[in-house]
């Protein structure tokens, strides 16, 4: 689903060149949950942005679903993102003037879906995320966990092939983090979505099929976990909250 070849990113800061990513070669299969971990400054966010086409690499190729996104024009890329990709942000990035349901419907509005259809679909995804009671609330009237659920609903509403999440639980407390992660993983599994998540929390990363560890812009570990390993890791992580029965 995602394929990179000799991906390299160099930032020029003043007269100095900083190599953010050096020669990244990855292959992420469809339906995989891929977690990118590393210390801050290791280049994990840069890699995610590169994979998602938000940033152009200095060199190398990124292919998603067989299409080379590094050579696309900005408008083609926008079009591609709209049809194939979903995003979940650390700081939720909901539009403050829109209600929860309108925020979720926003990608559908951008795609030009009629109002009735998009609100209907948005409500459905909101209720799947367990926040249908907040549908008509503005982001400022919601807790962080609720906002992120709305953010996740927004990412899923277009049924994208790939969802990118940059520290999606970074602003949440431990309890909420687990709930939100659970919710994301459940939906990813249900839809067979390829999920790429950046986190600095190894415990969270341990829930993925693939754990890519970066250091100084290089992949130092590309670990594939077996289903049993994943199950075990997830069980450990969620043992405290599993009794809530919410998921």
């Amino acid at each position: 689903m995602i394929y990179t070849e000799a991906l390299r990113k160099v930032y020029v800061i003043g007269k100095e060149k900083v190599v953010a990513l050096a020669n990244i070669n990855l292959q992420i299969a469809q339906g995989e949950v891929c977690c990118i971990v590393g210390q801050s400054g290791s280049g994990k966010s840069t890699l995610l942005n590169m994979l998602a086409g938000l940033e152009k690499p200095t060199r190398g190729i990124v292919e998603i679903a067989g299409e080379n996104i590094t050579t696309m024009s900005e408008n083609t890329l926008a079009n591609f993102r709209r049809q194939n990709l979903g995003f979940i942000f650390q700081s939720y990035n909901l539009l403050p003037q829109l209600t929860a349901v309108e925020n979720v419907a926003l990608p559908l509005m951008i795609s030009g879906r009629p109002k009735r259809e998009r609100l209907h679909r948005a409500k459905k995804v909101l209720s799947q995320m367990g926040v249908e009671s907040r549908a008509t609330h503005k982001p400022s009237e919601m807790s962080g966990g609720q906002q992120q659920r709305v953010g996740i609903a927004r990412a899923f509403v277009t049924k994208p092939k790939v969802i990118f999440a940059d520290e999606p639980t970074g602003n949440l407390d431990t309890h909420t983090t687990k709930q939100v992660l659970m919710a994301m993983l459940a939906r990813v599994k249900k839809h067979g979505t390829t999920f790429v998540m950046v986190t600095h929390e190894p415990k969270l990363a341990a829930c993925g099929n693939r754990i890519i560890t970066l250091l100084d812009g290089k992949v130092i570990e590309n670990k594939i976990q077996t289903e049993t390993e994943i199950e075990e890791n997830r069980r450990i992580l969620f043992s405290e909250t599993s009794e809530t029965g919410e998921f």
Binding site: N75, P96, I110
Partner: peptide, 14 residues
């Protein structure tokens, strides 16, 4: 920020 979000969500430049 709003503009950025719209763009990431695939809003065309036009």
């Amino acid at each position: 920020r709003e503009i950025g979000v719209m763009k990431v969500l695939g809003c065309s430049l036009g």
